[in-house]
Design a protein around this nucleic acid. Structure first.
Length: 406
RNA sequence: CGGGCUGUGGCGCAGUUGGUAGCGCGCGUCGUUCGGGACGACGAGGCCGUGGGUUCGAGUCCCGCCAGCCCGACCA
């Protein structure tokens, strides 16, 4: 991609309203644009990142037998009345059609997928099943905030698993923990598996995947041994002895919830009468688990964790491009050589953003490269001769290499 | 939803006791520059969030509404 052709431009100055790091950098670098509180457009660079994250999620969900589907965002009121959430869920967006029919915009999809499952699950032979989608969710948050971290419209992966027995759900639940950990690790994040409230559906705990960062809005109590509880259920406080290992002291850590997994039990099976015939011929309720990852929030969380004063520092697997080729100086030879390098890299399958803007100053280009935060910067200038300067965004060191060594 | 702050060219801001709007960045043209957002000249661009009120006259004063941000509450 030639930067001169890029749809979005960068900005030297922060927006007045940008108080969170992710909002500030993502807007300034042209990854996203805010339409209104909690609602963002994704521009080419941001959309690429979202795709990278989505693809990682797909690979890991497929690895635990997930099958991707795509459900509607527009839901009939009836299904939400049936589960009681038309009244009880305060973040539910409710809309009315011109003929006065009522609908909701999906904040989550149990109300859609369970009736769907009813048409495809009849026997124990049909179980287990795991279906997931990556979809826009709507939640009528009273206070959207912190850039991509709390939106009213956002991208989310939700997987639902259907089981014949509690044991089977438990086994799958544990597998999902590993899959989730893989997702976050690949996204450059260290997610802490944290016990949290199970909500109104189950007496069991749920688990949240929390990323420690100063700008997080959650508070968790953790121990080096792996113990971690959300403040909403924590029976320990900072400085207490860890109830699990009995040695270390508990730390209070601010964090961002990037994923959660729930044991829904039979709550929704009961609401929609989702039953299967077991081996012994008896009819039983299907046991359901639900597993979410906030894809767009994850993008914001990555920025919150990986940045410096100059801009973002994208982890390799989620970076919009692998290489940022920067041509310095208004010099024909430089641009000719740059074009060759750009073609060569692109042909060999590398993803390259080439800053080919001849009219832009060197400082502007280097500043943009830091702001955008592509992992590897390649510089060609009158100084580099027939070599190329290579610098990792996260490091200070500069290497001079020949084209062949790239 | 309670409390607070803020709405003025694309962005960041200034605008005095009320007298018909200005700066920086960005943008356009020309020229000079070229390794950390360079410089000069000329130029384009504003129903001052919105509705009402006070006044001879409102960006400025008063009231309502809308929007954005922050704190809190909320967040299956």
């Amino acid at each position: 991609m030639k930067q001169s052709q890029l749809f979005s431009k960068t900005s030297k100055t922060s927006e007045a309203d940008a108080t969170s790091v992710n909002h500030d950098f993502l807007v300034r670098a042209g990854f996203v644009d805010q339409l209104m509180a909690g609602v963002y457009s994704y521009l080419p660079l941001g959309w690429r990142v979202l795709h990278k994250i989505s693809d990682i999620v797909r690979e890991e969900m497929d690895a635990i037998a997930g099958q991707e589907i795509f459900l509607p965002a527009l839901h009939p009121k009836e299904n939400w009345v049936k589960t009681g959430r038309w009244e009880s869920m305060d973040v539910l967006f409710k809309i009315k059609s011109q003929s006065d029919s009522e609908y909701s915009l999906g904040p989550t999809h149990e109300e859609v997928i369970v009736p769907l499952a009813k048409k495809h699950i009849n026997s124990y032979r049909d179980l287990p099943k795991a279906w997931y989608q990556i979809q826009t969710k709507f939640r009528d948050e009273l206070r959207a905030k912190a850039g991509l971290l709390r939106g009213r419209e956002f991208l989310m992966k939700d997987l639902y698993s259907f089981h014949a027995t509690r044991e089977d759900l438990q086994a799958y639940y544990e597998k999902s923990k590993q899959a989730y950990t893989n997702v976050f690790t690949r996204c450059g994040l260290d997610a802490i598996i944290t016990e949290a409230s199970g909500g109104s559906f189950t007496k069991e705990f749920s688990h949240e995947f929390q990323v420690a960062t100063e700008n997080g809005e959650d508070l968790i109590f953790t121990c080096a041994c792996g113990f971690s509880q959300n403040k909403e259920i924590a029976k320990v406080g900072e400085g207490d002895r860890c109830p699990r290992c009995g040695k270390e002291k508990i730390k209070a850590v601010k964090s961002i919830e990037v994923g959660n997994i729930f044991d829904l039990g039979t709550k929704f099976s009961k609401d929609f009468d989702l039953k299967f015939t077991d081996e012994d011929g008896t009819s039983k309720e299907v046991i359901i688990g639900c597993y979410g990852i906030g894809i767009s929030r994850l993008m914001g969380a990555i920025v919150e964790v990986h940045n410096d004063e100059a801009g973002m520092i994208w982890p390799e697997e989620v970076a919009p491009y692998e290489y940022h080729l920067v041509s310095l100086g208004d010099n024909d030879a430089v641009y000719k050589q740059s074009e060759e390098v750009y073609e060569q890299l692109t042909k060999s399958g590398k993803e390259v953003l080439w800053d080919d803007r001849r009219e832009a100053s060197n400082g502007e280009k280097l500043g943009d490269a830091d702001l955008i935060g592509i992992p590897t910067r390649l510089v060609i200038s009158p100084k580099t001769g027939d070599k190329i300067e290579v610098k990792k965004r996260a490091e200070k060191e500069i290497k001079i290499v020949s084209i062949k060594e790239l």
